[in-house]
Design a protein around this nucleic acid. Structure first.
Lengths: 201, 201
DNA sequence: CGCGAAGTTGACACCGAGTGACACTACCGG
DNA sequence: CCGGTAGTGTCACTCGGTGTCAACTTCGCG
C-alpha cells in the first residue's frame, strides 16, 4: 500500500488527460466529422502518440460514448431511491430526470448536444451507443421484475424487459424530437408527452 | 442492353455465392465464434480471396445481419396492408407475425436461431443489429404518424417514434425470453404477453 | 541523498477489416 | 476472330487496435 489517498494524483492526472483528449477530439469531430478524424490526429493534437491514446481510451468510440457507462449505475441507484409502491412507469419517468441535470451550464450543455448529434451522425457510433443503452436496460430489468412480481407469467417473463425497453424507446424518441426542435420547450415535456402515450396494464 | 432477362444468371449466381459464403461462415462462427473467425478464413473456406468476399458482402457484419435490410420493406408493406381503422398497437402486433413465417423448415429455423444467438454473443454485431432495427423503425414512424394524426402535439411529435420503439422493445424482449426458454411455447405467446403489458392512451 | 520499484510513454512490429488500382481471365455478341 | 464486360486475384495501402520492449519519470524508503 504505497498510496497516499486511494483516489490520488495518478487517477486525477489520468482524468485530466482524458478530458483534454475529449476536448480536442470534439473540436476535430465537429470540424471534420467523426469518421474522417483518425486516432493519430487526435493523439497528435493532444501531444501524444496513438499508443498512449489507447491507454486512456479503450477505443475511439469510447472517447465519445464511454461516459454512458456511469449512466447505468446512476440510473439504477435512482430507481432504487423511488418508493416501492410507486407505479413502475412513473418511477422510470422520474428516473429519466437524471438525463437533464447531468448538464448544468450552457456551455457544457451545448457541447453535450453537439456530441449527441455526432453520435447520431455516425452509424458505427450510433450502433455502439444503442448497445450501451441495451446494457443499461439489462441492469434495470431485474429491479423492475421484482417490482412487478405481482403479475408475472413464469420464470423468464418478457414483461419487465418490455417495460424497460419501452421506457427507453420513449426516452430515445423524446430525445430525438427535442434535438430536432428549436429547443424552446424543455426536454421534460417531450418525455412526458412520449411516456404518457402508454398506460401499463 | 445485353441482358436477356433483368434478373438473370448474373444475379442468381451472385445470390448463390452469397448463400454459399453464409453457410460456410455460419459453420466457422459456430465452431470458433464470430470474433475469432477472420474474413480470410471464411473466404478461403469458400474458395475465394478476401477481396472477392468483400465484393459479395460490404462487411463481415453484413454477412450475418444483412438479411435484416429486407425486413424493413417487408414490415412496412405488411403495415400498409392492415386496415386503417385498426388500433396501431394491434396492427404492429400483427405485423410482427412476419418474424415467424420467415423460417419454415426446422433445419433452417435451427440455423436461424443459432445465428441470432451469435448476434447476441458479439457486442460488435449486436450493436450493428440494434442500429439496423432502428432504421427499420424509422421506416415505420412516418406511417404510424399518419395513423395517429388524430392526437398529435405539434410538428415533431415524439409519440409515433415512441409507439414504434416500444413495439420493437416488446419484440426484442419476447425474442430474448423465447430464445432463453426451452421453446416449448410458441414465440407468438411471448410476444402477446409482452405487448399486452401496454395499453395505448 | 541515492537506490530501486512502479508507472508512463513512445517506437516498432503486428493483426484484421476494408479499399483502390491494376492486370488477367472468361464469356458473350457481332 | 475481335472487342466489350463482368469476375477474380494480387498488391499496396489506410485505419483501428494490441503486444512488446526499452527509456524515462516519479515516488517511497532507507
Amino acid at each position: 500500500m504505497s498510496e497516499t489517498i486511494p483516489q490520488s494524483i495518478r487517477e486525477r492526472t489520468r482524468r485530466l488527460a482524458q478530458t483534454e483528449l475529449t476536448i480536442v477530439a470534439q473540436d476535430l469531430f465537429l470540424e471534420h466529422g467523426y469518421e474522417n478524424t483518425t486516432v493519430d490526429e487526435i493523439a497528435a493534437a493532444a501531444g501524444m502518440s496513438k499508443r498512449t491514446f489507447f491507454r486512456y481510451f479503450a477505443s475511439k468510440d469510447d472517447l465519445v460514448i464511454g461516459k454512458y457507462d456511469l449512466f447505468g449505475d446512476r440510473i439504477a441507484e435512482a430507481l432504487d431511491a423511488r418508493p416501492a409502491d410507486e407505479p413502475v412507469w412513473d418511477s422510470l419517468r422520474r428516473v429519466f430526470d437524471l438525463t437533464l441535470d447531468y448538464v448544468q451550464d450552457d456551455h457544457a450543455r451545448a457541447r453535450n448536444d453537439a456530441m449527441e448529434r455526432i453520435v447520431r451522425s455516425s452509424p458505427q457510433l450510433h450502433a455502439r451507443y444503442l448497445e450501451k443503452m441495451q446494457r443499461v436496460q439489462e441492469i434495470l430489468v431485474g429491479r423492475v421484475a421484482t417490482r412487478m412480481a405481482d403479475q408475472s407469467s413464469g420464470r423468464n417473463d418478457p414483461k419487465p424487459a418490455a417495460v424497460v425497453g419501452a421506457a427507453f424507446a420513449c426516452m430515445q424518441a423524446a430525445r430525438t424530437a427535442w434535438l430536432e426542435s428549436s429547443q424552446d420547450q424543455p426536454f421534460g415535456e417531450y418525455l412526458d408527452d412520449a411516456m404518457s402515450t402508454f398506460r401499463i396494464n
